[in-house]
């Protein structure tokens, strides 16, 4: 028998053994056999391809179930209870937590803040990221160095950059206020994190600063998959540089734009660290996002059930974001398969 590494080889051995003394000519196809009883169930679990696949998936699956599916399920379950920190268990209260939230103006403010934060920050991150990617895709000196530098905001831990921004936005020592005063443009410090509008703008700016590298580098990677000969062909076809972007670059980039913007929206929508380090939701809840409100209610105030309900309320929004990009991606027929009708 040839050294074929098939899951069914043990069956082969079993067959040959059962016909002891008979000359069987091994073919590449194992004969369907009713001799399952000869090889033990354990042998089959060990060598059958389907079972093997399951074994190999098991560690990853266990990891995902333990650290993703279980907490998610637990969170949703908690939102239906009146669980509090330190009390253990809690009673099932049905939709009571959600009914409370429905009449909670702070909750609705946090929903508004989250949507504002996500939409404005994502839109600007997209625009700036795309611009930066197009810029970095050109030939220029020190290209690698500049590309690496662009990634810096992404590498620095969020909390550290948040603390830096905290200083930049400080009501007394802000370098922005100081510079503007020195330039004679304003005559008193801007209360960046103390005024609702300024605070919202400030946290959005900090989020953009942090998020742009991810968008830019991913789009740059996408840009580099576009064959230069397409641009040359378009140039010969008479396209201006704007037309090359509009008719070649942008359409070819849409799949990767869909992916990167989905991620960007998800990350922004669930942002917590930056807000918590900068404003803790203040002033007067003007920058409270659903994530920070959930943490404040659930952990700091100890009302786990209510916190879990706020967190669970984020799920429909996230699903909607994923659905939009999913259906957006499905439309593009040109990149699907090589079917010949």
């Amino acid at each position: 028998m040839g050294p074929r590494l098939r899951g069914d080889d043990t069956e082969w051995v079993a067959i040959n053994r059962s016909y002891n003394g008979m000359t069987t000519i091994p073919t590449s196809l194992p004969t369907p056999t009713r001799h399952f009883g000869k090889s033990s169930a354990w042998d089959r679990l060990r060598t059958n391809r389907n079972w093997l696949a399951l074994w190999f998936m098991l560690p990853a699956a266990a990891f995902l179930i333990l650290f993703l599916a279980y907490p998610l399920f637990l969170g949703v379950w908690m939102s239906f209870t009146d669980d509090r920190i330190g009390r253990g268990g809690g009673n099932f209260v049905g939709l009571e937590n959600y009914e409370w939230l429905k009449d909670d103006s702070i909750f609705w403010l946090s929903v508004f803040n989250t949507l504002l934060y996500t939409i404005v920050a994502s839109a600007i991150k997209f625009a700036v990221g795309l611009y930066l990617a197009l810029l970095l895709n050109r030939h220029m000196p020190f290209k690698a160095l500049i590309r690496a530098a662009v990634l810096i905001p992404f590498i620095v831990p969020t909390v550290l950059s948040a603390i830096a921004f905290w200083w930049i936005y400080d009501s007394q020592f802000s370098i922005i206020s100081w510079s503007l005063i020195k330039m004679g443009l304003i005559d008193h410090n801007i209360n960046f994190l103390g005024d609702s509008s300024w605070a919202r703008g400030s946290v959005i700016f900090a989020n953009i600063w942090r998020g742009v590298p991810f968008v830019a580098i991913t789009l740059l990677a996408g840009l580099q998959t576009v064959s230069p000969s397409l641009y040359e062909a378009a140039t010969l076809d008479g396209a201006t540089s704007w037309q090359r972007f509009r008719f070649i670059t942008y359409p070819l980039l849409t799949p990767i734009i869909a992916v990167v913007m989905t991620f960007s929206v998800l990350f922004t929508f669930t942002d917590f660290q930056l807000i918590w380090a900068l404003t803790r939701g203040g002033p007067v809840n003007a920058t409270h996002l659903m994530a920070t409100l959930s943490y404040q209610r659930g952990i700091l105030s100890g009302r786990l059930g209510e916190g879990a309900a706020i967190a669970t309320a984020m799920i429909p929004f996230l699903m909607a974001a994923i659905a939009i990009s999913w259906f957006g991606m499905q439309r593009r027929k040109w990149q699907q398969g090589t079917d010949n009708d």
Binding site: S227, S229, L230, E232, A233, A234, L236, F247, I248, P251, L252, R332, W334, Q335
Partner: peptide
């Protein structure tokens, strides 16, 4: 002028 490229350079979309 019009040019035919080695890899055809057809616009995939």
């Amino acid at each position: 002028i019009a040019m035919v490229f080695q890899n055809y350079a057809l616009y995939p979309h």
